[in-house]
Simulated assay, not measured.
Amino acid sequence: MIVGRRELLRGGLGLSAASALPSAVFAASARGRAALGLADITIMKELGRDYSGTLRAIAAMGYSHFGFRLAGYGGGSREPSAQDKARMVRDAGLEVGVVRLPPVRPDLDRQIGDAVAIGAKVIAMSAAPPFISGRLGVATRAAFDAWLPELAALGAKCRAAGLTLAYHNHWWDLMPLDGGESPLDIILRSIAPGDLAIELDLAWCWYGGVAPLELLGRLGPRVSSMHFKDIDRKRGKSTTDHAVVVGAGEMDYAALLPRIRRLTAAVGYIEVDSPPDGLAAAAAGARFVQAHR
Rank of each mutant, 00 (worst) to 15 (best):
L219W: 10
A57C: 05
G236F: 01
I270W: 04
K45W: 14
A60N: 05
P258A: 12
D50S: 12
D273K: 00
G180S: 07
L101E: 03
V116I: 11
V116N: 05
W204N: 09
G220V: 01
A142T: 13
D201P: 09
A60S: 11
L38V: 14
M125T: 06
I2N: 14
R33E: 08
A192N: 04
V267R: 02
G76M: 00
R135H: 10
P129E: 06
A20H: 14
R287D: 08
A283E: 04
R261N: 11
V98S: 10
A254F: 13
R56G: 15
Y269A: 14
V245W: 01
S29M: 01
A34S: 12
A197T: 02
Y253S: 10
L154E: 07
A120P: 06
M88I: 03
I2Y: 09
A266D: 01
E181W: 04
H227A: 10
E95P: 06
A59N: 10
A17W: 05
A115W: 05
P221S: 10
G162D: 02
F144C: 12
A152V: 01
D107I: 05
R105G: 13
A143H: 11
I112S: 09
S190K: 07
L101D: 05
F68P: 05
K85V: 07
G93L: 03
D114F: 12
S19W: 00
R235Q: 13
